[in-house]
Amino acid sequence: MPDPRPDPAPLRLLDAVTQGLNVLGSALILVLMVLFGLDVGGRVLFNAPVSGVPELVTLSIVAIVFLQIPQALRSGRMTRSEGFLTMLHARAPVAARWIETLFDLIGIAVLWIIVSTTWPIFAKAWESNEFIGALGDFTAPVWPVKLTLMVGGAMLIAQFAARIWRRHLQ
């Protein structure tokens, strides 16, 4: 049942940004496909493979996942077993809501641990110019992916918080 009242502005903004990340991630998948095509085509047809495709694939997958996981949560895709909660919502709705809020808080906590512990990893990769690949052939910096992980993780935290907000607006 859709909520008759529209979301407050901050939540609508959050959803818009979440969707923006989702679009970026989807575009990245398409880019990967094209890269593979160029590499295979170049190798087979022109004896000229594209350098660095394995490295770019290795980097991109992490970015793809963290760009899209906030939207996955928003659209109800994140995996859970609803049986117990459905039963509880029918019998003890207040308790059920507090348990759901507790679960969202656990989500916020573990994501906070991941994002905040990634910060020094990102800083080091940025400062020492960490790369993937081989010098002289192909190299790509790794900091953009660490940054994406933190951005996606932060948005996931925000989406968990938004669930709590929405729950208590009802």
Partner: peptide, 12 residues
């Protein structure tokens, strides 16, 4: 593409 992204993200 969007659907692919969501399933990939969920699974990964």
């Amino acid at each position: 593409l969007v659907e692919t992204g969501l399933v990939t993200a969920t699974v990964c």
